[in-house]
C-alpha cells in the first residue's frame, strides 16, 4: 500500500528575540488510508504539524523537513500556487470553531458550491445538486433550506457539519481535522465525529485527527501519535492505549476524571525534563 503522506524530520521554527523557538522538533510520520490521531497538550506542536503539512505556517515561521511528500507531489518545493491547488483538491483542513472558518456574509449554499467550483469544472446547477447531496450526507435535515441560511443562523454543531461538507465536497484524499469538536457540546460532539468517521471510511480517505483529548482520539483513530514539546514520545495502536508505556501517555490517561471509576484525587502529571530531550519516535510505516 502506498502512503498518502510521508513526512520525515519535520521542523517548524519561529525566530524570537531570544533565539529561535522550535514548535515542532524533527518528527517523522506517514499516513496511509487510515485514521491517524495526533494528541498533545497546548504547546505540544500538534496544530503546527497539521498546518505545516498544508504549508499554512505564517511568516516568520519556517518549515523544514528532509522529506515531505503528498502522493507524487513534493510539498517542500511546491509553489504557493501548487499548494492552493493541493489544498482542497488533495487535502482539506477543518478548524476548531466553525464560527471563524465560515464566511459570515455568504450563505452556506454558496460557500459549499464555491468550494467545489474552484476545484472542478462543473455547471452551477450540478454543483448545487452535489452540495445538497453533501449536506444530506452530513445528516443535515432539510438541506435545501440550510443552503439558503447564513452562518450565524446555524448552531455550532450544524456549522461544523457544514464545514465537513464543504471540506469533503472536492473529494480530497486527506482530511486534517484540528480539534473539530472542542467547541461543541458532548452530545453533538459524538454525532459530528460519527459523521466524519463514516465519510472518511466510506471514501477511503486518510484522516489526521488533532486533539487534546486522548480518549476521544482513541475511539476514532487507528493509530495515535502522542506529542510532547514538539516531538513524538509514543506511537500507539488505538485499541492498545492501556498498554501505553511512556509515563507522559499514562499520566495523560490518569489525569482525566472518570465518571464510573471515581478517585479521591486525580493524578497530577509529573513532567520529567528528560522527555523533552528524548529523540522523537518515528511513526513511519
Amino acid at each position: 500500500m502506498t502512503n498518502l503522506l510521508d513526512v520525515e524530520n519535520l521542523r517548524v521554527t519561529f525566530p524570537t528575540r531570544s533565539g529561535t523557538f522550535e514548535a515542532v522538533r524533527g518528527i517523522s510520520f506517514s499516513l496511509g488510508r487510515e485514521r491517524l490521531g495526533i494528541v498533545g497538550e497546548s504547546g505540544s506542536g500538534k496544530s503546527m504539524t497539521g498546518r505545516a503539512i498544508l504549508k499554512l505556517i505564517r511568516k516568520p515561521g519556517i518549515v523544514t523537513a528532509d522529506r515531505m511528500r503528498m502522493g507524487d507531489t513534493n510539498l517542500l518545493t511546491a509553489s504557493e500556487r501548487e499548494m492552493r491547488r493541493i489544498r482542497g483538491r488533495h487535502a482539506s483542513m477543518i478548524m476548531q470553531d466553525p464560527k471563524f472558518s465560515l464566511n459570515p456574509v455568504m450563505t452556506v449554499g454558496s460557500q459549499i458550491t464555491e468550494a467545489l467550483l474552484t476545484h472542478e469544472k462543473t455547471s452551477r446547477a450540478e454543483a448545487r445538486k452535489r452540495a445538497v447531496g453533501m449536506l444530506d450526507a452530513v445528516a443535515i435535515r432539510n438541506p435545501e433550506r440550510v443552503m439558503g441560511l447564513y452562518p450565524h443562523e446555524v448552531s455550532g454543531g450544524m456549522g461544523q457539519r457544514i464545514m465537513i461538507a464543504m471540506m469533503l465536497i472536492p473529494n480530497p484524499e486527506i482530511l486534517i481535522a484540528d480539534e473539530p469538536t472542542s467547541a461543541l457540546d458532548v452530545s453533538v460532539q459524538l454525532q459530528v465525529l460519527e459523521i466524519m468517521d463514516k465519510l472518511v471510511t466510506d471514501r477511503g480517505m486518510g484522516l489526521i485527527f488533532i486533539s487534546h483529548d486522548l480518549n476521544l482520539v482513541s475511539n476514532f483513530c487507528d493509530r495515535i501519535l502522542i506529542m510532547y514539546a514538539g516531538r513524538i514520545v509514543e506511537v500507539c495502536q488505538a485499541g492498545k492505549l492501556h498498554e501505553a508505556k511512556h509515563p507522559y501517555t499514562i499520566g495523560l490517561l490518569n489525569s482525566v476524571p472518570d465518571l464510573e471509576h471515581p478517585r479521591p484525587r486525580l493524578d497530577a502529571l509529573q513532567r520529567d525534563p528528560a522527555w523533552r530531550e528524548a529523540p522523537s519516535v518515528s511513526a513511519l510505516t
Partner: peptide, 9 residues
C-alpha cells in the same frame, strides 16, 4: 489542558 485540569481540580 487535562493534566492542568487535574492539578486545578
Amino acid at each position: 489542558d487535562v493534566s492542568v485540569q487535574a492539578e486545578i481540580l
